[in-house]
Amino acid sequence: MAQSSEPLLVVDDLVKEFRTPEGSLTALERIAFSVREGEFVSVIGPSGCGKSTLFNIIGGLIGGFHGQVTIAGAPVSGPHAAIGMVFQEESTFPWRTVVENVAFPLEIQGMPKAKRLARARHFIALVGLEGFEQRYPFELSGGMRQRVAIARTLAFEPKILLMDEPFGALDEQTRLLLGDKVLQIQQELKQTTLLITHSIAEAVQLSDRVVVMTYRPGRVKRIVDVDLPRPRTLDLVGSEAFGRYTAEIWNDLREETSRGMREAEARVRGAPGPR
């Protein structure tokens, strides 16, 4: 696959601190990694490692950080036309039909109605929801709604697709199938993707590289190159090579997750109970 020599997304020496009543809290410490065009990179870490903060910073929704986040060389200083975000929570607009939801970014850009509805239909078909254009989100299942959210972000045609645990609320089986679907789309569109997840299996199944983070303050513990063949079929999930990568990452994470749990318990023990 032909790639430009410069990486598309560069995160360099990123530090983010929050001011809390207890003092300054460092959420992210000297995060550094890059994503090349067409790559699928996952960021994985225990709860509390600052993954969502990282997601919001790269997406331009949070500022006030030190260090650099650049896209094709240009620094990120707000929501960027080159970045499309898919959020963890339910994010479809309940008052719009599926096709109106997916056409939303095009409407914001001022595309005329007939044209944007036609383009929206293209992306609806891409995520496998043809026939559901006129339905409302409340009529769909959770997985279908997330597919609508993904289609909507794809309609924005971002250079980088940024996803924060989009399948977090779904059951394991649906996750695997949807992950597979996203992978298909990614391969077809050669879409550069950065996925935030806490599922090791998901990270290994989908990614070219996995960035493993530590517990708070979030640092990059390791970057793992996942050298599995593509296409990544679901049979691959049970294979030995897959298992080795999963074990490797779990080793890194186990330590961080334990530390996270211990610190959380200490916080509760230390805090005064209800009066």
Partner: peptide, 23 residues
Amino acid sequence: VLIRVGRSFRATPLQLLTTIYLP
């Protein structure tokens, strides 16, 4: 989250009002 969706798609404050807040 709906507001964040609007912002991530670079909606102007007026667009946020008319396409998200009011509905």
